[in-house]
């Protein structure tokens, strides 16, 4: 862990690192906050809904990425079509933003929080099965659904969602 933080620091800001090595007393008070920062900027904070969507919120809480959970992808079975959200669409928490079809079932994808759609994952149009393979991957080629911008209400909605641990307990109790 220490090495990866150090690597991040070096990549992000070499001058900080040199300052740290010069003054060990500053280093101890800095380290925890730097570790937290590097973790959020790398993966974002991910939370889950009871409807099995996930959302990553970026560090400054202005934008996010939405997808469906691994648990949901497994439950749905082979996804054969993804109805992607409309670019620019503004939705409230719980509103349908798209749908997936699998095994003759059309299932709504709901917005986890109030947000505005800013980009959609076109990979899913051609390869809907990506949702089954990597549903929680928010990188290029992953199964994420859309990117969104987030306002104050969205951040408020976000706080009410489950973190990974709570979601794991929730899905465990569904069966």
């Amino acid at each position: 862990m220490a090495t990866s933080v150090a690597r991040c620091l070096r990549a992000a800001c070499p001058s900080t690192l040199s300052r740290l090595t010069r003054n060990p007393s500053v280093r101890t008070s800095w380290q925890p906050s730097i570790r937290a920062f590097s973790a959020t900027s790398f993966r974002g904070i991910r939370k889950y809904t009871k409807d099995h969507e996930w959302i990553d919120l970026n560090a400054d809480k202005t934008s996010g990425v939405i997808g469906i959970s691994e648990y949901a992808a497994e439950e749905l079975g082979d996804v054969v079509y993804v109805e992607l959200p409309e670019d620019g669409k503004v939705v409230g928490a719980g509103d349908a933003i798209g749908a997936v079809e699998s095994v003759k079932s059309a299932a709504d994808i709901n917005a986890p929080i109030s947000c505005k759609v800013t980009a959609i994952n076109m990979v899913l149009e051609e390869k809907p099965g990506t949702i089954n393979l990597v549903p929680e991957d928010d990188s290029h080629g992953g199964g994420w659904i859309c990117k969104v911008s987030v306002d104050e209400q969205g951040v408020k909605d976000f706080e009410a969602l489950m973190d990974a641990e709570a979601y794991k307990v929730f899905t465990g109790s569904e069966h």
Binding site: D51, G94, A96, V103, K104, S105, A106, A107, D108, N110
Partner: peptide, 8 residues
Amino acid sequence: GSAYKLTR
């Protein structure tokens, strides 16, 4: 023939 619609 069967078909399904799933909502929240």
